[in-house]
Amino acid sequence: MSGRLPSGLLVSAMLRRCNDVGGFGVVLAKGDAGGGTILVVVTRPGEPDRLLERGPGPTGESILIDSTPAAGTDGGIADYWRRRRSRDPDLWVVELDVAGAEQLVAETLLMV
């Protein structure tokens, strides 16, 4: 057993926390409730959108990774996550519009 909480529970917690601090969050694509990867689209007015997800750090611990495609990449963020989802139907895609989104995502996805 990995000790990680199910993905569906983590997504619900992230959306609730976002709502509790006055932000807006929505599930763009629902993945596997037990173990799907969670990709978070962070949107803020006047700022470029970003993609965040949990991944392995240099020493094996879980860290938050910025998976935003490089500027000029074909199609942008929406096309990127749709391509990923076509290869991984278990992928969750969540969009958050909230101040301090990176901290909220890290605190939710990196909790043990």
Results as ranks from 00 to 15, higher is better:
Leu5Gly: 10
Thr108Met: 09
Tyr80Trp: 10
Val21Tyr: 05
Ser67Ala: 15
Thr68Glu: 03
Arg83Asp: 15
Leu9Trp: 04
Thr68Ala: 05
Gly35Arg: 05
Ala70Glu: 15
Leu51Val: 04
Gly22His: 09
Gly3Ile: 00
Arg83Cys: 14
Gly35Glu: 12
Thr59Ser: 11
Ser67Arg: 12
Pro56Val: 09
Arg85Asp: 06
Arg83Tyr: 12
Leu104Tyr: 12
Leu52His: 05
Met14Leu: 15
Glu95Lys: 12
Gly57Phe: 08
Val11Lys: 01
Val27Glu: 12
Asp49Arg: 11
Leu91Cys: 00
Leu10Arg: 10
Gln103Ala: 15
Leu110Ile: 11
Glu102Tyr: 01
Thr73Tyr: 10
Ala70Met: 09
Leu96Lys: 03
Ala71Arg: 10
Gly31Gln: 10
Arg16Trp: 09
Pro89Glu: 08
Ser2Leu: 08
Pro48Gln: 05
Gly22Asn: 08
Gly31Ala: 10
Ile65Pro: 02
Phe24Pro: 00
Leu5Val: 01
Thr68Leu: 06
Thr108Ile: 03
Gly3Asn: 12
Arg83Thr: 14
Pro48Gly: 09
Arg82Leu: 14
Leu96Met: 04
Val21Leu: 06
Gly25Asn: 03
Thr59Asn: 10
Thr43Asn: 08
Ser2Phe: 06
Val40Gly: 01
Gly46Thr: 01
Ala33Tyr: 07
Gly8Asp: 07
Gly75Lys: 06
Ser2Glu: 11
Val94Ser: 01
Leu109Ile: 09
Arg17Leu: 14
Trp81Arg: 02
Ile77Gly: 06
Thr37Ile: 10
Arg84Asn: 08
Thr108Cys: 13
Gly36Lys: 05
Val40Leu: 03
Thr43His: 08
Gly57Met: 07
Ile63Leu: 13
Arg83Lys: 14
Leu15Cys: 04
Trp92Asp: 01
Leu109Ala: 11
Val94Phe: 01
Ile38Gly: 08
Gly57Asp: 13
Glu53Ile: 00
Ser12Lys: 13
Arg17Tyr: 12
Gln103Val: 09
Met111Arg: 06
Val98Lys: 04
Asp74Glu: 15
Arg87Phe: 12
Asp66Ala: 04
Thr73Cys: 11
Pro69Ser: 06
Ala13Val: 05
Gly72Trp: 07
Val40Tyr: 00
Val41Gly: 08
Asn19Asp: 15
Gly72Met: 05
Asp66Lys: 04
Gly57Thr: 05
Ala78Trp: 07
